[in-house]
Structures are given as structure tokens and as C-alpha cells.
Design a protein around this nucleic acid. Structure first.
Lengths: 220, 220
DNA sequence: GGATTTATTTTGACTAATCAAAATAGCGCC
DNA sequence: GGCGCTATTTTGATTAGTCAAAATAAATCC
């Protein structure tokens, strides 16, 4: 059985290799897990010996098929738990990430299946992150971000990729939540600042960095 | 913060000291935790150094006020989770114990409070075990068991104290669940066998050992 | 293209929790 | 009141995961 530490390493390798299908550098992995780099090296070598990752010394790490299977399981548990906390327990979507982080290592398949059924087999969690299926399929649709999308066109927020509670509360306070309608009125790359128009003519200013973690689709 | 192992030691000291308010022998504790006796000794000495238990070498261990507070917290989480699994997720009451064993160490107070409210602040779990309050009060009402109660009188099962799935399935198959009506038709101590009359004139045979873990009250 | 900066790995040490097996202390028993 | 049984404690070792700090390799920069 995978320990909690092993599950966390695999989950973060998966998350950090999203999009960039390349090797995940050890430094990034160590930072994500909040351990010193040497610890990550030691652990990754052990995971490689177990066949869960492949390690290119000095360059980085990537999941094997088996490691990816395990990581997708953890991610599925995490996102279903987040959905449950919001939909059933009526918790705030800006604070459920940390809770799910704990529970994801303790919930059994039997309980998870019940939860999934109770929630109606949701496709995304409250942040818009796709939930891997039980068979290990992860929707990898690519969206534009508020930092890269066209100007002026009406858009819908589909996903917020950034887990910190402070960031999410900042977003929530400005109406920047999945499902919300938004238009980019102005984007000043030099100043790193965007002006957004929300529904009801509300105007909101966000940094370029923040805009990059808000994914959007045409309002169709 | 208490680790999972620490929480389990404290929880089991609490459970084993129920009724017998005496010292819990190390052997019993080790058996309950499924560790060798030497391990229990080592750990108990560490817990004593932390002020969570008091250890009388060669005689046994008991909780301090602080240790009891922690243990009651774990027990509250365990029993509320069991109740949730049965009431909300519709799982079988005979199989939720093992699930709760895992989740009890991972659930936060914030989530637990929501769960408690959703369930309507239940007083007992699906086995009839009392749920400690948030303030750390544990109902310690003493009941008769089927092994000790009066014969022939109509009774109501209030609690099953025995956690193993096999035992509980045995009980469930015979209608021996909390709330059920029962009467002890015959009790043969020499043979260690009881004959019970359930509602609908159903006759059930149980061992004296099994009867001892089924608590009853007058059918009022 | 050698010197410097930066990321990564190595080394040595530590903590929590465990086991196996030897040592010891109560306890009951004639 | 010593003998032996049984529970408990000690001792020595192991595993998983971690850190601090030294060593090393890759990349960058005149």
C-alpha cells in the first residue's frame, strides 16, 4: 500500500506535469511538497525503485503508467471530497482544499463510490478542476486564461487553478468564481494589470499573475 | 499535534477502561492495538512523558485528564463518522467500523461540526454507542446485557459492543440490531447457550459470549 | 573556454514507531 | 518461603521520512 507521503509525491508530480509534459524538476517538486531538495531526491529514488516514477538524475522526474494510475486515484479522491464538502456540507469553496488534502489519504474505495453516486458523478469539482473517472481518465481540455484570451468578448469562467485560500477568497469577493460571466476590458502587459467587466457592469482589477490562473471559455 | 498512533493508543486506553475504572493492563492494550507488548510499553512511556497517560510500571496505564480529552475527541469523530456513513451514505452498519477507523484521524473540527449538524446532533451511533459531546461529555449509562438480564421480560436492544464485521453480520442476520425487541426465553450457563425470542415469534440461539456484548433495556 | 552561479545529489544524523528476543518482576503454589 | 509461570520491560535493530550541510554537476557568462 502507498503511504501518505508516497501518495503526495505522486499527486504533485502529476499536477506539476500538467500541460508541460516534460520532466518535473526536483526543485519544483520539493517546493510543492514543502521539503528540502535532498529529501525529494531520496524519496524519488525510492519511488523509482518501486517503479512508480522514472528519474533522470539532475534533470527531473516523471510518472510511470503505474505511478500515474495511483496519482489519478488520489486526485479523484481529492476532488470528489472537495465537491462533497461544498455540495453536501455547504462549506465555502475557498476553504475546502486543505480539508480534502487530509481526507484524500483516508477514504476507501467503498466510501468514495457512495460519495460519487450521492453527488451524481460530477465531472468537475467546485474550482472547475476535472475529476478523474474511476477508470483513470482525466479530461485534459485546454482553455484560455484571462491573461491570454481575446479582449472584449463575453466569456465564462470555467476553472480556477490555484489552491491557496487567500487567493480564492480574493477571487470570490470579486465574483470571480466558476460559472461567472466576464469580459476583459483592458490588458496592460507593461503594468501587469487587467481590467475586467463582470455581470452587472461591475469593474474589477486583477494582476496578470492572478489572471493566468483563471481559465475561461466563450460564453456561447 | 497528536499523531495517528498516539490517537489510537489513547482511544484504546479509553475503550478498555470503560466500566472497569482500573488500570488497563499493557497486554490488553497491546492486543487491542495489534502490537507486541514491548512496543506498547515503549509508547506508553512516551505518552506518560507527554502527560497524556499515567503509567504504573508492571501494572498498567490510565488516561490523564488531558489524555482523556484527546481520546474523547477521537471517539467522537469515530462515532459521528459511522453515523454519517450509515445515515447519509446508506452503508451497512455492520461494515462502517473499519472505514471510520481510517477517517477519524483525518477529519477536521470544521468538517466534523458540519457533519454533526447535518445528522441532527445524534446521541448514539448505529451500534448504539454513545457519541461524546463536543464538550467531552460521554454518556456512561450502565445497561444489562442479554447474558445478565432478567428472563422472559420484553426488552429492547440498545447497543452492541463488539466491532468485528463478522460478529455484527451474525447479529444482523438474526435481527439482533439496536432498537429490536427481544426476550430471553432460556439461559443455560453450563452449556453457555441462550435462546431468544425475537418479534414475530422468531427463535434465535446465541452463545453466552455473544450475549454479553448485546446491551438491553426494559421495553418500557 | 575556464570561472562562477545554481540546481541537485550525497552524506551523516535524527525522530517516530515498530519487532524479536533476552531480562526481570510479580504472583500463586505447594 | 523458595519455584516456576506469566506479564511486562529492556535491549538492540529496522523502516519510513525527514533535515543540514558538504559535494558535485550543469548551465551561464564574460
Amino acid at each position: 500500500m502507498a503511504t501518505i507521503a508516497v501518495e503526495n509525491y505522486l499527486k504533485h508530480v502529476l499536477l506539476l506535469s500538467e500541460g508541460a509534459d516534460d520532466l518535473v524538476p526536483m526543485g519544483e517538486l520539493a517546493a510543492a511538497l514543502d521539503v528540502v531538495p535532498g529529501t525529494a531526491t531520496t524519496m524519488v529514488k525510492a519511488l523509482a525503485a518501486e517503479g512508480l516514477v522514472s528519474h533522470r538524475p539532475r534533470y527531473g522526474v516523471r510518472l510511470t503508467a503505474e505511478g500515474r494510475r495511483v496519482a489519478l486515484g488520489v486526485l479523484r479522491r481529492h476532488r470528489l471530497i472537495e465537491t462533497f464538502l461544498v455540495e453536501v456540507l455547504k462549506m465555502d469553496w475557498t476553504e475546502v482544499h486543505a480539508e480534502a488534502e487530509l481526507l484524500e489519504h483516508a477514504i476507501s474505495d467503498a466510501v468514495l463510490d457512495r460519495l460519487d453516486a450521492l453527488l451524481g458523478h460530477p465531472a468537475t469539482d467546485p474550482h472547475g478542476d476535472p475529476i478523474p473517472t474511476r477508470q483513470g481518465k482525466l479530461d485534459s481540455q485546454v482553455y484560455a486564461t484571462l491573461a491570454t484570451c481575446v479582449l472584449a468578448k463575453p466569456l465564462r469562467i470555467v476553472r480556477i487553478t490555484e489552491q491557496s485560500g487567500e487567493f480564492l477568497q480574493f477571487a470570490e469577493e470579486r465574483g470571480l468564481r466558476p460559472g461567472a460571466s466576464v469580459r476583459v476590458a483592458d490588458r496592460n502587459l507593461a503594468a501587469g494589470l487587467l481590467t475586467l467587466k463582470m455581470s452587472g457592469a461591475r469593474t474589477v482589477a486583477v494582476s496578470l499573475a492572478a489572471a493566468g490562473s483563471i481559465l475561461v471559455a466563450p460564453a456561447d
